[in-house]
Write a protein that binds this DNA or RNA. Structure first.
Ligand SMILES: [Mn+2]
Ligand SMILES: [Mn+2]
Ligand SMILES: [Mn+2]
Ligand SMILES: [Mn+2]
Lengths: 219, 219
DNA sequence: TACATTTGTTAGACTAGTCTAACTTTATTA
DNA sequence: TAATAAAGTTAGACTAGTCTAACAAATGTA
C-alpha cells in the first residue's frame, strides 16, 4: 500500500515526464520543486521508490517511472481528474477551485469508489480543464490539439484544454468568457511584441500575450 | 490545522463520551482500544491534545472534550455521516460498506466541499445507519427512540437506527430484510434465554437474541 | 486495610518524512 | 580543457506517531 506521500511523488514524476513531448524523465531538483520539498528530501524518497520497484533511478542519473510505478501514477491521476469532474459538475465548484480539493481526494483508497464515481459521472473523458481522464485499465483518451500560439490565422477553433491551471489564468479566462468549447479565431499576429488579436465566440476581439496563447489548447 | 491522526482521536473521544447516556468522558485504555493503538500511544497524544486546548485531561484522570475539541469532533462526525449518505444514496454502496470509505473521506479539508455536499444531498438529517448528521453550526437533529429490547410487546414500531454498525450485524439485518424504516412488532419475550420473537414488516416472524434486540433502535 | 488487579504513565527506541550544511558529480562555458 | 555553475547526494538532526518494557497510581476485594 502506497502512502499519501509516495503517491504524490509518483504523480509528480508522471506529470513531469509527460509535460514536454517525449521527455519521459525527470531530475531530482525538478521533482523537489514540483512537490515543494528540498532536493535532499527528494533524493531520499527516490531511493525508497526505487527499492519498491516503482521508479528506475541510478545515482546522479535521470528518473523514470517503472511499469508498476506508471500504473500507480495513472490510477492517482484518474482519481484526481474524476474528483475534479465531480466537484465541477455536481457541486458547482469553479474550475480554479477543483484542483486543491482533488489533491486530497485523489488519495482515498477504494477501487469501488472510483469506479462507481466514474459511472455516476457518466464515464467522462475529460476533466474540467480539458485533460483526459485515464480509464480503469490505464488507457488515456486522446485528442489531437494545438497550442493557440501555433494556430492558423483566420481558422475557427474551439478551446479543448488549458495548459496552465493556475488560479490567475483560469480567473482571467473566466473574465474573458473563455471556457472549454469556446470558439476562438486568431485575427492577427502582432510581430512587434509577439502578441495576438483573437476573436472570442464570434462576439468580441481582444489582444492576448504569447504567454497566454501558449497556455490554451485548441482544435 | 489538525492532523489526520489528531482528528481520529477527537472523533473517538466524542464517540466514547456520547455512547453511554450521560457518560461524557473516557479513559486512556478505552481511547486506545477504540483507535487500535497501545495505551502508551494514547497517553502521548492526549498530552498533545491537552496542550492544544482540545481536551481536558489531568494525569490519571478522566478525559473530556473541551469546547474547541467538541466543535472539531462534531465537524468530523458531520463529514463522516454526510459522506456515508453520499456513498449510499448516490453511489449505491450498501450500508455495511460506507463506513470504511467515510473513515477516509471525513478528513478532507474544505468547508465548501462539506456544505456543497450537504446541499447536493438535500440536507439529510440522518445517515444510512439512522445516526443524526450534525449541522454546520454543530446542532444535532434529535429523535427519541428506544432499544428494541425495551419495546412494548404488541406495539408496532419502525426501525430508526442501528446501534451496532459492524458488517456482520448489518449483513444479517439485510438477510432479514430489515432496514431503516422497516416495521417491527415484538410478539413475545422468551424469558428462558432472554430472546425475542418479532414480526418483520407484518410479513414474517423470527426469533432474535437479546444482543440483537439491544443493537436496534425503534420508534 | 492490605493485597491483587486494572488502569495509566514513563523511558527509550523505531520509522516516515522532512530539513540544513557540506560535499560530489556532471554540465556549461570561457 | 580547465574553471565555474548547476544538479544531485550524504550526513546528521528534527517531528509526528507508534511500539515495548518497566513502573506508578487507582480501584476492587478479601
Ligand atoms: Mn496529492
Ligand atoms: Mn485538471
Ligand atoms: Mn478517520
Ligand atoms: Mn454511520
Amino acid at each position: 500500500m502506497l502512502s499519501h506521500t509516495e503517491e504524490n511523488y509518483l504523480k509528480a514524476l508522471l506529470k513531469i515526464s509527460t509535460q514536454n513531448e517525449g521527455k519521459d524523465e525527470a531530475g531530482t531538483n525538478e521533482m523537489a520543486a514540483n512537490l515543494g520539498v528540498k532536493p535532499a528530501t527528494a533524493t531520499d524518497m527516490l531511493k525508497k521508490l526505487k527499492e519498491k520497484g516503482l521508479v528506475d533511478y541510478e545515482k546522479y542519473g535521470k528518473i523514470t517511472l517503472s511499469a508498476e510505478g506508471k500504473k500507480n501514477a495513472l490510477a492517482i491521476l484518474r482519481k484526481h481528474r474524476l474528483w475534479e469532474t465531480f466537484l465541477s459538475k455536481k457541486l458547482d465548484f469553479s474550475w480554479d477551485e477543483v484542483h486543491e480539493v482533488a489533491e486530497q481526494l485523489e488519495h482515498i483508497k477504494s477501487e469501488k469508489l472510483v469506479d462507481k464515481l466514474e459511472e455516476f459521472l457518466n464515464f467522462p473523458e475529460f476533466d474540467p480543464h480539458g485533460d483526459p481522464i485515464p480509464k480503469a485499465n490505464g488507457e488515456i483518451p486522446v485528442i489531437k490539439n494545438t497550442l493557440l500560439a501555433a494556430a492558423d490565422v483566420g481558422t475557427l477553433y474551439k478551446v479543448t484544454a488549458v495548459k496552465d491551471t493556475s488560479s490567475v489564468f483560469l480567473k482571467y479566462l473566466e473574465k474573458l468568457n473563455i471556457n472549454i468549447g469556446t470558439k476562438i479565431k486568431v485575427i492577427e499576429k502582432i510581430s512587434f511584441d509577439d502578441s495576438f488579436v483573437i476573436e472570442v465566440n464570434e462576439e468580441f476581439k481582444t489582444n492576448i500575450s504569447l504567454k497566454f496563447a501558449k497556455s490554451l489548447l485548441v482544435n
